[in-house]
Computed example of a mutant assay.
Amino acid sequence: MNRRQFQAAMASTLLPPLQTGCASTAQRDESLHLAAVDTHAHVFRRGLTLARERRYAPDYDALLADYLGMLDTNGIARGVLVQPSFLGTDNSFLLAALAQQPARLRGIAVVAPATPMAELRRMDGLGVVGIRLNLVGGAALPDFADGAWRGLLRRVADLGWQVEVHREAADLPRILPPLLQAGVNVVVDHFGRPAPAQGVRDPGFQFLLDAGASRRVWVKLSGAYRNGGNEAGQQIALAATPLLRNAFGLDHLVWGSDWPHTQFESKVDYAHARQALDASLPDPGARHAVLVDTPATLFRFT
């Protein structure tokens, strides 16, 4: 038994059984099966150059072939690859993956503020549709008033790209306003990362709800397990989803698997990540909007 098989076996013992098979659910809706989008996943392999400052480095491979197999098994047509934080601004592995599946994949890169437009345009041609600010875990917030950041955000806006934000909810009031003022669209990861002890009462999460009125912020219904252990994260997701739906509308919500669930590999698998959306959005029409309609436009699959 290899590492991945062991992790899958562990996940099946740690999580409750599925009520219905996720792949069979998708297959019952052929239009969803042909068009659904997973908006948050990572690919990498051992031996790649790692960022000097990192919180974590995996000791296994998460290859494109593995990810595409997960999509096929779970009835998901297309995916968005997000540059993992531990690879820093070296997006070469991500870009190589996009080049292999240009119709099926899009990408979110991590770049330095001084990255020139020519390089951004090259990435755009390969399927990159935005940049990520992975600021979780106490990382210093960017000084968006700095000239280099202003220039980067102007270039991102000119390309029509998004800025994806991963940060605890408490700091969203300091992050979202300058990004919106810079004219970029913003996608907030993992339900906005409310504090586990506060859940939807977190003032930062409440600020995020207010940001829905801007119509330039989207939220990923993804990685619920990152918002609290022992099922607390999923309970927060169940409470947060109707609030987010009311504040943003289904046209500003998307779903992501967060595959391969870094640091949570033994506690969750792809099928359960997919089923979590069914639990929080039981209405098939709502799921179709979140899985198909909204991400197709936001990530330029149409």
Rank of each mutant, 00 (worst) to 15 (best):
N2P: 13
R4K: 11
L18R: 00
T20N: 02
T25F: 06
T25C: 09
H33R: 15
L34F: 05
V43W: 10
L50Q: 12
A51V: 03
E53T: 11
A57Y: 07
Y60T: 01
L68S: 02
G79R: 01
V80P: 09
V82P: 05
D90E: 06
A97E: 09
G107H: 05
V110Q: 14
T115Y: 05
M117V: 12
A118C: 04
G125F: 12
G125L: 12
V128L: 04
G130R: 00
L141I: 08
A145E: 02
A148D: 13
R150I: 04
R154H: 12
R155W: 04
E164W: 05
R167H: 11
E168V: 10
A170E: 11
I175C: 10
I175P: 08
P178T: 00
L180V: 03
V184A: 09
R193F: 08
R193C: 05
P194G: 06
A195M: 07
P196S: 07
P196F: 02
S214T: 15
R215I: 11
R216A: 09
V219P: 04
R226V: 04
A232S: 08
A232E: 03
L238P: 04
A240M: 12
P242I: 01
P242H: 04
P242L: 01
L244S: 13
D251W: 03
S257G: 03
S266H: 13
K267T: 13
A273H: 01
A273Y: 01
S280T: 01
D283N: 11
